[in-house]
């Protein structure tokens, strides 16, 4: 019975996260537009796009594997969201945190890209392997600084549970890992630029190189599912960062604000940078950010 209740609460949490993700996406589009000197779309444009994509009449499928892309992508996003505590002490945000969930969450991060590689390939368009290859190699690169940062935190706290890591920073903002582990935070936040896939690391769907990369053959309902997955994936990642470095959240308002601030970090970088080539981006992540990560681990160990 308690489990059923928890499932109900978590579903509500997922819905809120999707809505907030779409809204944030709209705000980001508006922000980019303002920087470029445009008016930009209304902030609720993400919802309209979602609805429109669901109302496309034809959906052309390329076999059963084709469904894997959107499905795995959404599953990855929902998975991350469900296994980290979004809001401590509020039922829809508690979710299913357990000892060792951090490892599971990091595994879920690969999910989306793998799904796109599998599903997109069923479409048979040559952009798919190029885009998927780019995505996976860049992901391998930015996981290095991120995992080093996580190892540093875990070595210090002695737990693989996001919940415990959050509770360890409970005493005010001076206890936040952002301040107590500055090197780990720096490595992780640089890795986040790659995770979010905004410029300069938007190599996967680079519009004028390989337009939309692995998603080339997707349309209609598939795109809508992908959009939902992306919205919740973005929010879940931000919540993970909030839990790891910004001391989690105890109310929904606090969570909204912290998530938004973390999101804006990658948007601010994206607005003024061109795109790296994928080899350059890998070289970037394996250079300074990885070194900072190593320093963080060394500091935590000794």
């Amino acid at each position: 019975m308690e489990l059923l209740l928890q499932i109900l609460w978590s579903s509500i949490g997922v819905l809120i996260a999707v809505a907030y993700g779409l809204l944030t996406g709209g705000i980001v589009r508006k922000l980019f537009a303002r920087i470029q000197g445009r008016v930009g779309p209304p902030v609720y444009q993400g919802f309209i796009d979602l609805g429109k994509n669901f109302f496309v009449r034809d959906n052309i499928s390329h076999g059963p594997m084709f469904y894997f892309g959107p499905a795995l992508r959404t599953a990855g996003g929902v998975g991350i969201f469900l296994f980290i505590p979004a809001i401590v002490g509020w039922a829809p945000g508690e979710n299913f945190s357990f000892a060792g969930d951090l490892l599971l969450v990091m595994y879920f991060m690969f999910f989306g890209s793998l799904g796109m590689a599998l599903g997109g390939s069923a479409g048979g368009h040559p952009h798919t392997p190029i885009g998927a290859g780019r995505g996976l190699s860049q992901m391998t690169a930015f996981e290095v600084p991120f995992i080093l940062a996580v190892i540093a935190l875990v070595a210090d706290t002695g737990s693989f549970s996001v919940h415990d890591l959050t509770l360890a920073q409970a005493g005010g903002f001076l206890e936040w890992n952002l301040l107590t582990h500055p090197f780990a935070a720096a490595a992780a936040f640089i890795a986040m630029l790659g995770m979010n896939g905004y410029a300069p690391f938007n190599v996967v769907g680079a519009p004028n190189e390989i337009p939309v990369g692995p998603m080339t053959e997707y349309q209609g309902g598939f795109i809508a599912t992908l959009g939902t997955g992306r919205a919740i994936f973005a929010i879940a990642k931000m919540i993970l960062f909030m839990d790891l470095f910004l001391g989690g959240a105890t109310s929904i308002l606090e969570a909204f604000i912290k998530v938004f601030v973390i999101y804006m970090w990658s948007v601010a970088v994206a607005a003024v940078f061109p795109r790296y080539r994928v080899d350059q981006s890998m070289r970037f992540f394996l250079g300074w950010p990885a070194l900072i990560g190593v320093v963080a681990v060394l500091l935590a160990l000794f």
Binding site: A33, P42, K52, V56
Partner: peptide, 22 residues
Amino acid sequence: GTSRFDMERFGITGGPTPRQSS
């Protein structure tokens, strides 16, 4: 599409591939 007559304010955006355009 750009800042003088920004069409995105009407919800009109570019579709990169035929599959994703209307």
